[in-house]
Design a protein around this nucleic acid. Structure first.
Lengths: 157, 157
DNA sequence: GCTTTGCTTCAAGTGCACTTGAGGGCTTTA
DNA sequence: TAAAGCCCTCAAGTGCACTTGAAGCAAAGC
């Protein structure tokens, strides 16, 4: 059933990003480290620093830790979450919906059902999109072949 | 070679939408008709009438026929083109790039090579996106399964 | 010590893809 | 003949997802 760290009754403080954050490629990150500046995270994720701040501001990030002098310190958990956000963005989900999901995550286990429903709807949409894109791939290849053939035999026989 | 109407040295007037417009589902359209109002096309395509006008204005449509009193009359050829545009939009291609492609189409056979290159780049991008979405599907399913399992067995073990 | 580098907040600006509004014309139905 | 419905153009407005600018703090290098 998904072999990831199921620490949802969280020990210290970091809010549960989400249970089950395995599967799929992660962002590159240095080994044995769990604290990154916004600049580092920007580099890892390809998101700009302002975007990361904005994500936090609108509630798309589970509030980020701060260093003694007020600078953000992102943890691996945050990188996992950003990786998931990247995937959702890829599916075309509006940021507002992702924020909604993030709120549900913050509310804890009681929202499991609603979270599941959201992800199931998303899954259906993604599946549809994948099928359409595969159709589109066929269209593209047929056109590419046409152009290539026309190139070899200029002016239709 | 793609078995569609390859009339690129065009007989009467309608500009060559594109050679090779087969493959993939078309918009629904009444049989044996080749002239539709903007309202009908809006209904077929799901695009709004203003959007269709805007597409024409920015050069994304090969200029549309007009009736005696100046109203647009879209043909099946236009529907085919809009269907292709819909696919390109689905791939995330910016409208500006589609306009560029439309320009190439208007310029005729001499642009076959450039068109092929564009479509090849697009194909690569779409392929990448499909793979990422399939990855995302796996992530979604794993999370869905987690939530479903947690639902059946509330509070760990 | 002073400048550079990298971070901070808050507000305003940008780019894209449309959408909406204002003002008007033609054709069809009451 | 008058109102309804569908079309027209042109210009301005909207929503989303960021991006940029202004003003300032704080540790690091010369």
């Amino acid at each position: 059933m998904c072999g990831m760290t199921v620490i949802d009754g969280n020990p210290v403080q970091a809010p549960p990003v989400d249970a089950c954050v395995a599967a799929g490629a992660d962002y590159p990150r240095p080994d044995g480290q769990d604290s990154y500046t916004i600049g580092e995270v920007a580099e890892f994720t390809g998101l700009s620093a302002p975007t990361l701040r904005w994500y936090e501001q609108i509630g798309l990030m589970p509030q980020v830790e701060r260093s003694h002098n007020g600078q953000r310190r992102f943890g691996n958990r945050d990188l996992d979450w950003l990786n998931f956000v990247r995937r959702l963005r890829l599916t075309g989900m509006p940021v507002a919906d992702m924020v909604r999901f993030a709120e549900l995550v913050r509310q804890g286990e009681v929202t499991y059902d609603e979270r599941r429903e959201i992800l199931e709807r998303t899954r259906t949409e993604v599946l549809t999109r994948v099928l359409e894109l595969q159709d589109t791939l066929a269209v593209l290849e047929s056109k590419i072949n046409f152009y290539a053939a026309a190139h070899r035999a200029p002016e239709g026989a």
